[in-house]
Write a protein that binds this DNA or RNA. Structure first.
Length: 274
DNA sequence: ACGAGCGCCTGTCGGC
DNA sequence: TGCCGACAGGCGCTCG
């Protein structure tokens, strides 16, 4: 799915607009439409349709991989999972394949939730914490320090890769940025979290922040049919580069499977021990 | 407290 | 050409 940098890019686009779409802050909602029932996680369809009209989009932000719209009464949250995207388009434009949920505004535009694989979800709730409360710290937040990461790593005895993918541990990393961060930090994806020393934790902390910031700078990554305009996919160092030379040392990148996820690392730069 | 397997979905790609 | 399995940015669940 879109990971933190992709969701951040989408939030920025909704807030500021793009050459193709106007900003949605301040727009008044006319109606909602649910085209695929399971895309709406909460509330019921009836309540969703009843509560939306007249609410104003006041702010747009991101928490982990969730996108949050502050409305005048409620909060509208989206999780894009593997293939979700949010677009602003004219209401008269033809319904694209895979549109799952629409928010029509009074000015003739609509917000379209497009999601090929139907894994994404939307929530309309009075308190966003009912959806967000289990998330770990924001990796780019000012209050998240290298010392925090070291202590959190030592609170568990888990393989680094599945731990970094666990949104309760840290909010926002997915398969791409985890592989990239571990490579940058020189840590094996199967290394055990409480065997990471303070220097390594500090390096991992820095690497996580750097790869996320690099992703944001490139407007995220665009893969397959989900093209969002970003080009970070041209800057992967290990992700989906099995067999290719490591950019640091030339050793062929290895691909293994960890927790059913393809995992890419350099066996020379990322030793499992020490 | 862990990790593995599976389900949820649609689409693409490579091998035969 | 068609068919078939592997795989894909995620995550919640069950089961050892």
């Amino acid at each position: 799915m879109p990971e933190l940098p992709e969701v951040e890019t989408i939030a920025t686009n909704l807030r500021n607009g793009t050459p193709d779409q106007p900003p949605i802050r301040g727009l008044v909602i006319d109606t909602g439409t649910v085209l695929w029932a399971r895309s709406l996680a909460a509330p019921t369809l009836d309540e969703f349709l009843l509560r939306l009209p007249g609410q104003v989009v006041e702010e747009i932000w991101r928490r982990g991989k969730y996108l949050v719209l502050n409305l005048s009464q409620d909060y509208l949250l989206f999780h894009l999972r593997m293939s979700g995207d949010l677009l602003v388009e004219r209401q008269e434009s033809p319904l694209a394949a895979h549109h799952r949920l629409l928010i029509d505004f009074q000015n003739g535009y609509r917000l379209a939730f497009n999601d090929t694989r139907k894994f994404g979800r939307a929530w309309l709730v009075p308190d966003p914490e009912t959806v967000l409360s289990r998330l770990g710290p924001e990796p780019l937040g000012a209050e998240f320090s290298a010392t925090d990461l070291y202590q959190r790593l030592h609170a568990f005895h888990r393989q680094l890769k599945p731990l970094l993918l666990d949104q309760r541990f840290l909010a926002g990393l997915g398969n791409i940025y985890t592989d990239e961060a571990l490579h940058k930090a020189g840590l094996h994806p199967l290394k055990i979290s409480d065997e990471v020393n303070e220097d390594q934790a500090k390096k991992l902390w820095q690497s996580v922040r750097e790869v996320l910031q690099e992703g944001i700078r490139h407007n995220g990554a665009s893969i397959d049919w989900v093209y969002r305009g970003g080009d970070f996919q041209n800057h992967f160092r290990v992700y989906q580069r099995g067999g290719e030379p490591c950019p640091n040392c030339g050793t062929p990148i290895e691909r293994i499977v960890v927790g059913q996820r393809g995992t890419h690392f350099c066996p020379h730069c990322q030793p499992r021990l020490r």
